[in-house]
């Protein structure tokens, strides 16, 4: 079966890998250790400290930066047709020094193009941006969009940005200009409505609420209406909450449309037409629960399979989606829905 994996996290071995791609003065800053990269504000409790514990280099060191390991453990093991690289280095997490942040995004994009995309035609690329400087982000999108494997712009979900705010419009205009998908993915700063809680498990459970907040912001502030050909995907943010959000937003819209008349359709219609979800973490639903949920969603076109490799909560495509689901539905989840979103065709044999 053809298979698109919508959420695969490539990385570098360390921030110094970006030095050859950085412009001055930021190259000099990183060379002298002025900044050592992001560090999560919590401890991971999984055996691999955030990653699968078996993602290791030949010498036993942990690896999220080795193409050979990824090819063996992911691409070849599961015979993946395409793997969408989504990174986990999101310069938007820097809350100041926008010039550095934008330069880091550019450097990372060039690093990924050379060290990942160029090595395997199965990779689909995403553009990293500094969303806090939307004009610079748009420039970076324009710069990278011509790459034939680039299909997407990453919008990192942090703790202080709801992307419906008008200041972010240049990002959406640039993405629409190049027919790129907008992907929302959490970061180590993402949290729930009352913060991260007191435990990592609290924060991780809360992540879907941040995605719901982003969808609400994007639709009610007119991004879906303002950029009518733009498509969106929620990565690693859950999906079983979709029926609730559709019903809730439609009800709110029927009674409160007067405040947001620039929204021209029921929110559920916007979602149905242009919002998609990656499946991981698949929440260990039974086949019967999958079918009931899809019935409540009103469409079998929302879901796109993802593994989240190499992270600890990885979903195995052979197990996480029940094999007893109808073949046609499996084909949509593993292939057709993703092929539609990214405009992909099956590779020539």
């Amino acid at each position: 079966m053809l298979l698109i994996d919508a959420d695969v996290h490539e990385s570098f071995a360390g921030i110094r890998d970006l030095i050859p791609y950085l412009k001055e003065p930021y190259r000099e800053w990183i060379e002298r250790g002025a900044w050592r990269g992001f560090s999560q504000p919590f401890a991971y409790t999984s055996p691999g400290s955030g990653n699968r514990a078996d993602v290791r280099n030949a010498d036993g060191s942990a690896s999220v930066s080795d193409y050979g390991v990824m090819r063996r453990q992911l691409l070849d093991t599961y015979n993946q047709t395409y793997a969408v690289l989504t990174g986990y280095f999101y310069p938007t997490m820097l809350k100041l020094q926008y010039g550095l942040s934008s330069a880091l995004a550019s450097a990372y994009n060039d690093f990924v193009a050379e060290h990942w995309l160029a090595k395997d035609k199965r990779f689909i690329g995403s553009i990293q941006i500094n969303a806090r400087d939307p004009e610079a982000a748009a420039y970076e999108i324009d710069r990278m969009a011509a790459h034939p494997q680039i299909k997407q712009v990453m919008l990192p979900v942090v703790d202080d940005i709801a992307y419906g705010h008008p200041m972010y419009r240049p990002i959406f205009a640039a993405a629409e200009r190049h027919a790129l998908v907008i992907a929302l993915h959490h970061t180590i700063l993402a949290e729930g409505p009352f913060g991260m809680g007191l435990h990592y498990i609290e924060r991780h459970t809360l992540l879907p609420t941040s995605m719901m907040a982003e969808v609400i912001s994007l639709i009610l502030n007119g991004v879906f209406d303002g950029y009518p050909s733009l498509r969106f995907i929620i990565l690693e943010g859950g999906f079983s909450w979709l029926p609730h959000l559709m019903w809730r937003m439609d009800r709110e819209y029927r009674q409160g449309r007067v405040e947001v008349p620039w929204v021209k359709k029921l929110p559920s219609q916007h979602m149905r037409e242009r919002l998609r979800f990656s499946t991981q973490p698949a929440e260990d639903l039974t086949a019967d629960q999958w079918l009931k949920l899809i019935d409540l969603m009103g469409s079998d076109e929302y879901l796109i399979f993802s593994t989240d490799y190499p992270h600890f909560d990885f979903d195995d495509p052979r197990v996480s989606i029940p094999r007893s689901l109808p073949d046609a539905l499996q084909e949509k989840i593993f292939w057709k829905n993703g092929a539609w979103l990214y405009g992909l065709e099956a590779p020539a044999q």
Binding site: G222, V258, E259, P261, W262
Partner: peptide, 14 residues
């Protein structure tokens, strides 16, 4: 009884 709220531009109410 009221009028028809409309707009093509966020944050502009007509």
């Amino acid at each position: 009884l009221t009028g028809h709220a409309h707009s093509d531009q966020p944050n502009v109410l007509l």
